[in-house]
Computed example of a mutant assay.
Amino acid sequence: MKTLYVDGNTALHRLSPRVKLAGLMLASILLFLTRSPLALGTALALAIYLYAMLPLGFKVSLHRLRPVLWTIAVVALFSFLVQSAEEATVALLRLSVLMLLAASVTATTTVSAFIEVATEAARPLERMGLVNAADIGLAIGLVIRFVPDITGHYQSVRDAHLARGIKLRPLTVVVPLIILTLKSADEVAGAIDARGIRNQKA
């Protein structure tokens, strides 16, 4: 499976995963507490700077963000159609900042670190008998690992369409994409069960 993590020695790489995730959570809260375009614009500039620090290069950086950029573009267009320009601008800035911050954290934090932090965060709930902390950490780790895989499956389906001269349509893309994703999920589940991971006690 592919991973979103990028090897490097930037300040974000050296920062503790707990600090990065806590900072991301705090930044998300603060972004939705302010409506100032100036403050949000400043936050966007800082987020761009953080993401630009990653050892990816412009082309790869843009490629990694492209799926989310399309989503933000659709949301922004809809916002400008149904809301005032100020409201739509605020929403666009918030989403853009969150996207860049989340991408920066994900690119500088290994999946194992995500799993460890999520498992520790779920310990209080486990002591209350509500969840299994190890399962929560594993689930979050798998979600993060599957993001680049799903993107890769989409690109494979798209290339197959183009090679056969078939026009891209939602139904002809979504169905094989779901099948490929479920197949990958089944393979991962089989590997997990073979190692007895889900039977281990945290």
Results as ranks from 00 to 15, higher is better:
F80V: 00
Y49W: 08
L162P: 00
L92Q: 02
V188W: 05
T109M: 08
K167L: 15
L24Y: 11
S61C: 08
R18L: 01
D159T: 13
K20Y: 04
L33C: 11
G190I: 08
F58A: 15
A133K: 09
R164C: 06
V188P: 01
T42E: 14
L177W: 08
L130Y: 01
F80D: 03
S184D: 08
A88N: 09
K59A: 14
G57L: 13
R66F: 13
W70V: 03
L142Q: 00
A191T: 13
T71K: 09
V173T: 14
A163M: 14
E116S: 15
L21T: 01
L182S: 08
L26D: 11
R66Q: 11
R66E: 09
L46H: 00
L33E: 07
L125P: 10
M99P: 00
L54E: 07
T181D: 08
T109P: 09
D7R: 14
V60F: 05
R145E: 07
P176G: 12
V117D: 03
A189P: 05
F32N: 13
L130S: 01
F78Q: 07
I29Q: 05
N132C: 09
S79H: 09
A45H: 05
F32C: 02
A121W: 12
T71N: 09
V74P: 00
A113C: 05
A163I: 07
D159N: 14
K59V: 12
L98Q: 13
L12N: 10
I197M: 11
L38Q: 07
W70I: 15
R64E: 12
G141D: 11
A85W: 13
P55Y: 13
H13E: 07
F114L: 01
W70F: 15
G141I: 07
R35K: 12
L15G: 02
I115A: 04
T3I: 04
I179N: 06
A194V: 03
I72A: 00
L44G: 07
G129Q: 06
V117K: 02
R123W: 02
A102K: 05
P176A: 10
L30W: 06
V68D: 02
R64P: 12
N132V: 05
D7K: 13
V117M: 05
A11V: 15
L125I: 12
N199I: 05
A73D: 03
A189V: 07
G190H: 08
S16N: 05
A122Y: 06
K20L: 05
V147P: 08
A118N: 02
L24N: 03
E126N: 06
P55K: 04
L54F: 00
L171C: 04
P176Q: 09
R198M: 11
A39W: 12
N199H: 12
V90C: 01
L98M: 15
G196D: 02
D7P: 09
P124Y: 06
A91H: 10
D7M: 09
S28Y: 02
K183M: 00
S84H: 07
Y154M: 13
D159M: 12
L54Q: 03
